[in-house]
Amino acid sequence: MKQDFDVVVVGAGAAGLFCAGVAARRGQRVLVLDHGEEPGQKILISGGGRCNFTNMKVGAENFISANPHFCKSALAGFTPRDFIALVERYGIAYHEKTLGQLFCDGSARQILEMLLDLCAGVELRFGTVVHEISHDGTFVLETSHGPVTARNLVIATGGLSIPKLGATGFAYEVAKKFGHSVVPPRPALVPLTFAPQDVSWMQALAGVSAPVRISAGKRRFEESLLFTHRGLSGPAVLQISSYLAPGAAFEVDFYLGLRAEDALLDAKTRRPKAALKTVLAEHLPARLAAHFAGADDRNMADLPDKFLRSLGGQLNRLVLTPAGNEGFAKAEVTAGGVDTSDLVSKTCESQKLPGLFFIGEAVDVTGWLGGYNFQWAWASGHAAGQAIQAR
């Protein structure tokens, strides 16, 4: 026997659960389906297990999309302050880490438990695979536990990042089936890899972290960089990775706030007997200072000005060209996704098929590192949940 609902939400992640809770509290009969055995798996691993659930300052400029204006309506309709109020209502202690990023004091599980509580009255079915979706006035879903019908369908299955947690291209398949375009998905917020001839010096520094400014075109981020055995990671690198086209280079400034050339020439005058490595270590981690100093053990007084100027240029503007990245397995999110051209910005509803919604990471809206993608999940889930009607 077919089971009928006002809305079926496919995907029990941040966006799907929040959307289901919003719709249920408006009196809708809601079913959530997920092929995983447990809900909210990406929530639980986020923020080192403490869930960076939003950011104090969120705007369209913090997102990447073929249509940079699309996210504005949903973000305005449900703000970070709205979600913070919810967190506070549930008594979840939190703190601001850096750059407006908010984390739970305790565990990310508190956020998941809050979402599940908001879904009181929602029917949740895990370990359920959707085999086929059709539409003949209502949506018919053929699932591994029998057929289901609904007047509304919300796709909240995310992107391709972290496949070990069950990520698939399901959202893109549904979008194409109902006439939507898909902006080609690609890994975002992902560590960068380098060709063998370029990566050897980075491997020698694996585990070293340093505050830097990374820039590519007009984009720049001031956060930490981490050397790895395959290349580079760390917040600054993850941020810039979302903006890099294949083969594109970027610049790294290791001497934040200083013109390295002037600093080195000044040190030569003031501290002529100091070793170059010692001078560099005042601004850089010791191993990184030793790398830039190389085998040169001369005192500052013995180093030619031309050499110091050249080294200063490297310290402020080291140009690097990655060979690639670590792919969806290590990417925190997926850039690209369901094209926003055929979605209503205020509701995330399809313009081609009323009652069909796409929310969260499935959509071509990708946030920066720092709680922005969770805020998009809450905002887009809220927009769709408020718009769903018992047709």
Rank of each mutant, 00 (worst) to 15 (best):
Q3A: 14
Q3T: 14
D4V: 05
F5Q: 08
G11R: 06
L17M: 07
A20W: 03
R25V: 00
R29Q: 13
R29V: 11
D34I: 06
H35S: 11
P39D: 08
K42S: 10
I43E: 04
I43L: 10
G47C: 11
G47K: 06
G48E: 03
G48L: 00
C51T: 02
N52Q: 07
G59H: 12
G59M: 02
I64F: 01
N67V: 07
N67M: 07
H69E: 13
K72V: 14
K72R: 15
A74V: 09
A74M: 11
A76R: 13
G77W: 13
F78Y: 15
F78C: 15
P80V: 05
I84G: 05
I84K: 02
E88T: 11
I92D: 02
Y94R: 03
H95L: 13
T98F: 08
L99E: 13
Q101H: 07
C104D: 06
L112A: 07
E113W: 01
D117M: 03
E123M: 12
F126Y: 14
V130L: 10
I133D: 15
G137T: 07
F139G: 02
S144D: 09
S144R: 04
S144L: 06
A150N: 09
N152S: 14
I155K: 00
I155W: 00
A156E: 08
A156P: 12
T157Q: 00
G158I: 02
G158T: 03
P163A: 04
K164C: 01
G166Q: 11
A167L: 05
Y172R: 02
G179K: 09
S181N: 13
V182A: 10
V182S: 05
P184I: 00
L189T: 00
P191T: 00
W201Y: 07
M202W: 02
K218C: 08
F221A: 05
S224C: 09
L225G: 06
L225D: 06
L226S: 08
F227G: 14
L232C: 11
P235R: 05
L238E: 12
Q239M: 05
L244G: 10
A248V: 09
F250D: 10
E251R: 15
A260I: 14
E261C: 07
E261K: 13
D262V: 09
D266H: 10
K268M: 14
P272C: 03
A275S: 14
K277Q: 14
T278R: 05
V279G: 09
A281T: 04
H291S: 04
M300R: 01
D302S: 15
F307R: 15
R309Y: 08
G312V: 06
Q314E: 14
R317L: 01
R317N: 08
L318P: 02
P322E: 05
E326D: 08
V333Q: 01
A335F: 01
T340I: 04
S350N: 06
P354E: 00
P354A: 01
F358G: 14
G360Q: 03
E361G: 12
V363H: 12
G367D: 00
G367T: 01
W368C: 08
W368R: 10
W368S: 10
Q375D: 08
A377G: 09
A377D: 09
A383Y: 12
